[in-house]
């Protein structure tokens, strides 16, 4: 019986791993499309999103079947609940990548109001956070989960700075309003992705310790 449970958990895990690669990868692609102002790449991201959504449903269904047939308890139960929540986070990450792609498509080609400075830094931090949170999950690393969640403040600060600067610019560059709003939105989406990475860290801690923390 125990083996059946472990087989099922392994099956779920391999799907979560695949979903993680797609979701985390979509951010890099979205930002590449953004930096290059490349609508073609942006459209590819939108085309891939249904695959991420499909995986979320598949993993949820596998978890429901696991609950119905194996009655998981204790750490098995906490792991199952964590997975159900993590795939929701990953699905949202995919959506934010799509949102960024939509901004890229709607802006088309344009002259930047000012060179990008903080957004690429933010993107790097956000991707690192998401990847680290997933590593913490797969490697059952509580320390890494806590350390990763702490980085959310840095991302929030960066977003604050970007937001303030662009808000100031919008007053003096009224004709470039669309672009500036687009940049603010991209910052906002990245900031939200970092929040989901933090959520994943919380799930890891719940799974490992049973503590339901808010980081």
């Amino acid at each position: 019986m125990r083996e059946q449970m472990e087989d099922r958990i392994r099956e779920i895990h391999s799907k979560v791993e695949y979903m993680s690669r797609l979701s985390a990868g979509s951010i890099g692609q979205a930002m590449e499309a953004f930096v290059r102002q490349d609508a073609r790449i942006a459209k590819q991201i939108l085309a891939q999103d249904p695959e991420i959504n499909k995986l979320e449903k598949e993993i949820e269904n596998l978890c429901i079947t696991l609950a119905a047939t194996q009655s998981p308890l204790a750490s098995d139960l906490r792991q199952m609940v964590s997975i159900i929540k993590i795939v929701t986070d990953l699905e949202r990450v995919g959506d934010y990548s799509c949102n960024i792609a939509e901004v890229v498509i709607s802006l088309g080609k344009y002259e930047l109001v000012k060179p990008l400075e903080r957004l690429p830094i933010m993107e790097k931090k956000v991707r690192e956070m998401l990847e680290a949170s997933l590593r913490a999950y797969f490697q059952h690393d509580i320390e890494l989960a806590y350390a990763t969640a702490r980085k959310d403040d840095e991302v929030d600060t960066l977003y604050e700075e970007i937001y303030r600067e662009l808000l100031h610019l919008i007053k003096i560059r009224e004709n470039q309003e669309d672009q500036i709003i687009g940049l603010i939105l991209v910052g906002r989406y990245l900031e939200r992705i970092a929040d989901h990475a933090t959520n994943i860290c919380e799930r890891v801690i719940l799974m490992m310790t049973g503590e339901n923390v808010k980081l």
């Binding site: 019986m1 125990r2 449970m5 998981p72 308890l73 204790a74 750490s75 098995d76 139960l77 906490r78 310790t209 049973g210």
Partner: peptide
């Protein structure tokens, strides 16, 4: 006991390990 047992032996028993 069933969501977060403290003792490893309890955990092993209720999870069938």
């Amino acid at each position: 006991i069933f969501s977060n047992p403290r003792d490893k032996r309890t955990e092993d028993y209720i999870t069938g390990r």
